[in-house]
Design a protein around this nucleic acid. Structure first.
Length: 485
RNA sequence: GCCCCCAUCGUCUAGCGGCCUAGGAUACUGGGUUUUCAUCUCAGCGGCAGGGGUUCGAAUCCCCUUGGGGGUACCA
């Protein structure tokens, strides 16, 4: 039995997309579940768009989500190099093999000629495909074309006789294509770089990949690759084409498709927790056999299986992610959440002088009402900024209600006298006032809340008072009293 | 246009011929808890795209229609 070897093969041509990271996740889960190897391969054959910065970004986001790989750039491995741009000599060897077997040929058509051909075919209602005009060039014709300074591409000879190409997909089952729809596709570009369809086959074979797990957008590339495996006489790996992740408008998730963030970095920056993102993503296209859905990565690995991956595309539902992330924020240990929240707080407020204890109380108080860390600054504003009534006129009216002055004065005076300005003591003091005075809870909490925060709603009042501190609490109560003098 | 894939509540999904009067989650609505909001909790709302078959029996199998998605590059 061969060991499971799967790979994640991103191209470093941009920010890493949430759909790509889901593919990475599923590869990771599959590898770990089967005690196999998870390989990272950088597909940087697009010289114009690939950059090393983007490669670093891929690493960074994978690290953030805790998706570690066993072989790849930086970590190394026996099957390297793991960057396609460093494997050019390898591809060359195999291209030569195809050329020698007369399974590939040089094509001198220019992009303009190709474009013209395509347009003509479309105008005639034909499927656009390369017509094979360079397939049988004589030696002389070739020399002539080369003399013109044309840089050829190399094309694969797709079968002339129709044959059925069957892909046995782990998620879709049998999928078949007619070889008629496959034209003589390019395997080496004029700059000497292999194309995706070619390099991927060579690498997956040489790296002994057992399962190719990738997005469904690659399904229609697969017959071309299958042809290549056949040409080399290689056994092809198993394929598993994962359902697409769609935006809220049901089209491919992209920057233009609505409000959802599409790059992993955006989720990181907004303060989504990696555990929550992994958990949420795992449920996009896969489901466990029971009704549970909150899982650690280890639990997902344990339950993961390719036959529970479903076939239909999934809309990325940010609202559900928000709920799940909020759940993680609330359930995580406070210390860690404080550490994570501090950078966000620092962006807007000066918290250098605040004690760790105070920060812990602050975070504990507001974490209940946020979905991601970046939201924290809105919630805590009332503790950092000067008191500002949401509606001063209404505040005045509230304070002017019967007995409210008494409530505010009593609270102010007893606050002055309270021995320990601690959450629990403040709570006891407030409850005592309610039972001592001829007022109900409503006549106490509502005006006091407005006096202390200026707002109609917010965290529990004793938390608010504790966070504000004795002095500021008294100040704000006086400020309210001044309003009705 | 052509090729391929897909089709259960708004959304993520369970369901692999009878356990389905279709289950869970989210969202939404209402109740309770918290003398506010949130959290938590309970309840409600809401779906098998349509049409043909097959079968004693179909959300489940087959066909067609419709709808959605992907591909159709010297991008991956």
């Amino acid at each position: 039995m061969t060991d499971t070897r799967v790979r994640f093969a991103p191209s470093p041509t941009g920010q890493i997309h949430i759909g790509n990271i889901r593919t990475a996740l599923f590869n990771y889960l599959f590898a770990r579940k089967n005690d196999g190897q998870f390989i990272m391969r950088i597909e940087d054959t697009d010289q114009k768009r690939s950059t090393s910065e983007f490669e670093e970004i891929i690493h960074r986001e994978m690290d953030w989500l805790g998706l570690d790989w066993d072989e790849g750039p930086q970590v190394g491995g026996e099957f390297g190099p793991y960057r396609q741009s460093e494997r050019l000599d390898i591809y060359e060897e195999y291209v030569q093999e195809l050329l020698d077997k007369d399974l590939a040929y040089r094509c001198y058509c220019t992009p303009e000629e190709l474009e013209e051909m395509r347009e003509e075919q479309i105008a005639n209602d034909e499927a656009p495909r390369y017509d094979g005009r360079c397939r049988n060039l004589t030696e002389e014709e070739r020399k002539e074309l080369e003399a013109e300074g044309r840089e050829p591409v190399i094309r694969f000879k797709s079968p002339l006789e129709e044959e059925e190409i069957i892909i046995n997909d782990l998620v879709h089952g049998e999928v078949s294509f007619s070889s008629d729809v496959i034209d003589d596709f390019v395997i080496v570009k004029s700059d000497g770089m292999p194309t995706y369809n070619f390099a991927v086959v060579i690498d997956d074979h040489l790296m002994e990949i057992t399962e190719v797990i990738r997005g469904e957008d690659h399904l229609s590339n697969t017959p071309k690759q299958k042809l290549l495996y056949q040409a080399f006489g290689w056994e092809s790996p198993n394929f598993a084409h994962l359902p697409m992740i769609l935006g809220s408008d049901r089209s491919k998730l992209s920057k233009r498709s609505g409000e959802a963030y599409v790059y992993v970095s955006e989720y990181r920056k907004k303060g989504y927790l990696p555990e929550a993102v992994v958990n949420f993503l795992s449920l996009l296209g896969w489901s466990p056999s029971d009704d549970e859905e909150i899982f650690s990565k280890a639990e997902i690995v344990e339950r993961f299986s390719m036959d529970r991956v479903n076939k239909s595309a999934a809309v990325f539902d940010v609202e559900k992610l928000d709920w799940m992330n909020g759940l993680y924020i609330r359930n995580k240990d406070l210390e860690t959440v404080v550490d994570l929240a501090v950078p966000y707080l620092e962006e807007e407020y000066d918290i250098e002088d605040e004690s760790r204890e105070w920060l812990e109380l602050l975070v504990a108080t507001v974490r209940e009402s946020i979905d991601y860390l970046a939201q924290i600054n809105d919630e805590v504003a009332v503790f950092f900024e000067d008191l500002e009534y949401e509606d001063e006129e209404e505040a005045r009216e509230t304070f002017a209600e019967e007995k409210v002055d008494l409530v505010l004065e009593t609270l102010r005076d007893r606050s002055q006298e309270l021995e320990n300005w601690e959450k629990q003591d403040i709570r006891a003091m407030m409850n005592q006032i309610i039972s001592d005075l001829p007022v109900g809870g409503r006549l106490f909490f509502h005006p006091v809340r407005i006096a202390l925060t200026g707002e109609e709603s917010g965290p529990a009042l004793f938390d608010v008072a504790a966070l504000l501190g004795r002095e500021e609490t008294i100040n704000r109560l006086n400020q309210a009293l001044d309003l009705i003098k």
